[in-house]
Amino acid sequence: MLTDPNFIRRLDSLYLLARKVLSGSLQADRKSMKKGTGITFADYAEYYMGADYRSIDWRVFAKFENLVIKLFEVEEDATIYILLDQSQSMTGKFDYAKQLAAGLGYIALNCLDRLAVYGISENLTPLLTPCRGRGSVMPFLKGLQDAQTGGSDSQFNTCSRLFQARHQRRSVVIVISDFLFPTGFDDGLSYLQWHKHDVYCLQVQNEADTRCELKGDIELECVETSQRRRVTITPREAKLYEQAVANWNQQLARSCAKRGIGLASTTPEISFDRVIQDILRRGGLVA
């Protein structure tokens, strides 16, 4: 139960840890990624054609005869979007995914960030409309608690486009999924990153995903599309499957590393708060 007092106390602990680790707000952690106009000095940069003359530091020019411009921190509303995979493939690990989403969302709301949660399967389903402040915690948790797995085929790429169509402002996008999308994840992640979102992937897979305990004659059925196929699984096929899953996850890790996307992989056997603590200790939701 996400609204259980005990669970909320665990979320509070996470929030306190987040404040201590991040020395302020999550927004401060994100500022290093973006430079622009503002009042708080951030850094110098070489002058380039088209730069604002007003930002040239004439003192530096007088001293070194080099044109440099001053950079200031951006000051904008930070919005965190959690894209929670609610396809049928998440059955068995969906509660764990919801706990992770609850932990991250709770910290965001307590840091006064805007938070929105969407479910991804064959379509993008809003689970929590954008909201802000501590008062939104309970609606957020209840919304998560009521979320169910469903849909016939998860389409991450389609959902990414739908998400971008709804929210064109740059934001932090946290994708919680097993990333076992039949159509792949590359296009979706590229699309989100192309539109300047800070994307963070939280991969949740259980042993049923990574190991093959099936043997002999069986009829395989896709949990999402209900496609079936009669096969004979020998140790060779089981090994091939495990290798294929490992390759798939390796491909996800390479894709994230190439794009500077943060990635954390976990299993339901590890408690959600420990996962979030690790994420925070590593410097937040950055690559």
Binding site: P182, L214, I218, E221, C222, V223, R229, Y241, V245
Partner: peptide, 13 residues
């Protein structure tokens, strides 16, 4: 044969 659900049907294919 027994029917077994799988989350990575596309990999089996």
């Amino acid at each position: 044969p027994n029917r077994k659900p799988t989350t990575a049907y596309f990999l089996w294919q």
